[in-house]
Simulated assay, not measured.
Amino acid sequence: MAARHIAIAGAGIGGLTAALALARAGFAVTLLERAPALEEAGAGVQLAANATRCLQSLGVYERVAEHAVFPQSFEVMDGRRGARLTGAPMGAQAEARFGGPFLVIHRADLQAALLAAVRETPAITLRLGHAVESFEAEGDGVTVHLADDAPLHAAALIGADGLRSMVRLALHPEAKPSFRHRAAWRATVPAQALPAHLAVPATRLWLGPGAHLVSYPVQAGRAVNLVAVTPDAREAHGWSLEGAPGELLSHYPDWSADARALLAAPERWLRWALFDLDPLPVWGAGPVTLLGDAAHAMPPFLAQGAAQAIEDAVVLADCLDDAGDIPAALRRYEALRQPRTARVQRAARGMDRIYHLAGPARLARDLVMRARSGNAVLERYRWIYDWRP
């Protein structure tokens, strides 16, 4: 069975999607997850047309869409004045323009939808509480050594084990995550706890000097997801580090009443130190490769982290489908994905600078945004949204 058996390290969004894609390509998949249970992590996820088309191709889009919200507009706001700088219609117009729907969803809902599909797929074995400790390539594949269990033999190992990837560390010990000196503060609040004009089905990006705020509806509109990004010198990482609301508000002293109302609404904030990776010149070797954040962790400023992992999964399965030479197929996958993901990484880093401009540069940016239509802002990223596997 090893010739058609793939092992995946990590059962996050990328690992779950890869398992589904590989099973559809005819592989038996063992999905290995260190955690003893898959629990809610993070907050909201934005999925643009490039990602939703992939979910459609895998037959899981309808399951995901049941719990999603389809924003009817995208707006960029002046965080201090509260005025709209630019915006564009979304919904059906954006879907027609880019050939696929744009949606927002709570990360737990997305994970639950993918997990349900995985559990219904006989070709996928999910093994929770199984940490990959090491691996070694052999003539006919790879042997994966697990903590407290017998070794596992497979034709290939896919490292979808996130920013702190053990698989990447073994392949590229020199490739260290880069701290961006920023933190993302995340919270979800009931929509009914906010003024009606702040709980509309829109994605809003609030810009100000040194910090920004994103708000959009999740959980079928019953809640609003908030992400506030501020300067931060603390490198402690993790999804569930408590953040003091007073500290967060101190980064937004002169912001508009609406922005501060959003920031004051949550009873609890979780602080997440932002790290990314410099683009890797090489991802894998032999029967081993990387996927998602393990290969190309990026700042969240283009909302493409999950989308790029989903793209990876579809391309990986396509390359391995009917492949006689597994290592050669993995190198083809890497050659297809590396230029695109590196470009998205660089673009996301560039938005870090643009979002957080201060002084005259901020005023100049805002003037340009007011003069430019929101459709032009979306068109700037057509190269992202138009992608098809």
Rank of each mutant, 00 (worst) to 15 (best):
G359V: 12
A116K: 15
H106I: 00
L249D: 08
F102P: 03
W387E: 13
E95K: 15
Y333V: 12
A193C: 07
W239F: 10
R382V: 02
C54P: 06
V344C: 04
L20P: 02
V189C: 09
H356E: 06
A211D: 05
R24C: 04
A323P: 01
A335T: 06
P299K: 03
L274Q: 02
V69T: 04
H130S: 07
R346C: 04
H106Y: 02
H67L: 02
L20K: 13
H153W: 12
W383A: 08
P177K: 13
A329S: 04
E242S: 15
G12W: 03
G162K: 01
A211E: 01
L378Y: 05
A123Y: 03
A3G: 12
H145D: 02
A25C: 15
Q308A: 14
E33I: 14
A211M: 07
G26M: 09
L205E: 11
A323D: 02
A154Y: 06
F275M: 10
R268L: 05
A19G: 15
A199G: 11
A228T: 10
L163C: 02
L226I: 13
R168L: 10
P327T: 07
R268W: 05
P71N: 09
V200D: 00
M369H: 08
G374V: 14
R372W: 10
Q46V: 13
A306Y: 09
V45N: 12
P266G: 08
H212G: 07
A259G: 14
H212A: 11
L103F: 03
A108N: 08
A313E: 08
Y61R: 06
Y216P: 00
L85Y: 11
L226S: 09
D318E: 11
S73T: 08
H197S: 04
P253C: 12
P71E: 02
D232E: 12
R331A: 14
S57E: 01
A65H: 05
I326S: 00
A48K: 00
F179T: 04
V142L: 07
D161M: 11
A184M: 11
H181F: 06
P36A: 15
A113K: 14
G292K: 00
H172V: 01
L277M: 04
R222V: 00
T341S: 14
H251G: 03
G286Q: 06
V218L: 00
L110C: 07
G324A: 13
R4V: 02
G82T: 06
A184I: 03
A376Q: 08
G238D: 00
T86L: 08
A137Q: 06
A28N: 07
R168I: 11
L336M: 10
A137H: 01
V314E: 00
M369L: 15
P339E: 03
R372L: 09
